[in-house]
Design a protein around this nucleic acid. Structure first.
Lengths: 187, 187
DNA sequence: CCATTATGTCAGCATTATTGACATATTTCG
DNA sequence: CGAAATATGTCAATAATGCTGACATAATGG
């Protein structure tokens, strides 16, 4: 049974890849639809296990992740990224704060703002979770060979709604620069 | 602002792709982690809208999808694929049956079994939803150029837990053969 | 006949999301 | 200055989707 189709094969239904024209949809991409479902489920599965032991869920992960990646982010911007309501965010954010994984600080220019930062414990947890997901990704990219990473990146970026894509890519790029060197004014 | 990084660029943190060795996790793949999050959200977003108008949710989509792809599937096997409990499945399955999207039939050899099939309405809905997702996928694959599809496919397959991978790939391959020609004994 | 299997169902609970309404503090602007 | 707008927090109710545990029914199979 080993290793079916993890290697390249002719792939009968590559009918022509039919790029642009969104005609009457020849034949659904069943394989990619299903693989994406299973891949994403397992991709978030590893963090889920760790979080469950702390009494947290997937929602906590998302909040912790984006706060870690965007130190000093405003609550309003976080809501924008996550596309949830502030009531939904409030609950999980309160738990993360109460448990000492996230801290708030007043904005310097605008004291209404509660800028969000991860605590050292929060950063450690965020890095642990990201490490699990990165391990999975790295293993696969290693199997793909050179160039694979860029193809995957372009595929995922292209799958994002056009209206959001640039904002997301800007955020990814910005945070790429922000994280590496320990940011200045962390609490 | 347009089109950042949808084109290939040097990509600073490609540190060596560090394939196999799962050492102390050098630097997280922040970009792919986040892109996967946003890509999956939008990938399921299109069907979500259609389903909401019918009073259905994502859970209904998954059930309808796998029944459509695996006509005559046993309840137990569906539970295995979805990895949920029969109580959770029962709720959404009952709605799909009551609303005429899924039908049950007794197994021929084993009359305890309730084999699941989509009705014509169910097939139409499943195809509509798959069409939306396929349109998104096809557009991106068209932008990736030849070879992109296979890289993406291998990436997604590789992201699946090793223990499940073969089973999933076998299912994908089997259904690839099952669907195309109208199956024999559908209700 | 009896143990097992396949399925369904009742009851209760948790997580994560929603909407609507309102409260508080602060900034901004006329 | 004072009113309007903004940023955030919170209360209450509801929905979707998952869970556990317990039990019921029907059919299979030794």
């Amino acid at each position: 049974m080993a290793d079916v189709s993890l290697t390249t094969r002719p792939d009968p239904h590559v009918t022509a890849t039919r790029g642009e024209q969104a005609g009457p949809a020849a034949e659904p991409s069943w394989d990619l639809i299903e693989l994406l479902f299973f891949a994403y489920r397992d991709f978030v599965g590893d963090p889920d296990e760790v979080l469950a032991k702390l009494g947290f869920g997937r929602a906590h992960h998302r909040v912790l992740h984006f706060v870690n990646r965007n130190p000093g982010i405003k609550v309003a911007d976080l809501l924008d990224v996550l596309k949830i309501t502030k009531q939904s965010l409030g609950r999980v954010l309160k738990q993360l704060i109460d448990d000492g994984y996230v801290a708030q600080r007043e904005g310097e220019h605008d004291r209404r703002q509660r800028l969000l930062y991860v605590t050292p414990a929060g950063e450690a947890l965020a890095m642990q979770l990201a490490g699990l997901q990165t391990a999975r990704i790295s293993r696969v990219l290693g199997e793909l060979g050179p160039g694979g990473r860029e193809v995957v990146r372009r595929f995922l970026a292209g799958m994002i709604d056009a209206g959001d894509r640039d904002r997301v890519l800007r955020m990814v790029a910005r945070a790429d620069r922000t994280r590496p060197r320990r940011r200045d004014g962390a609490p």
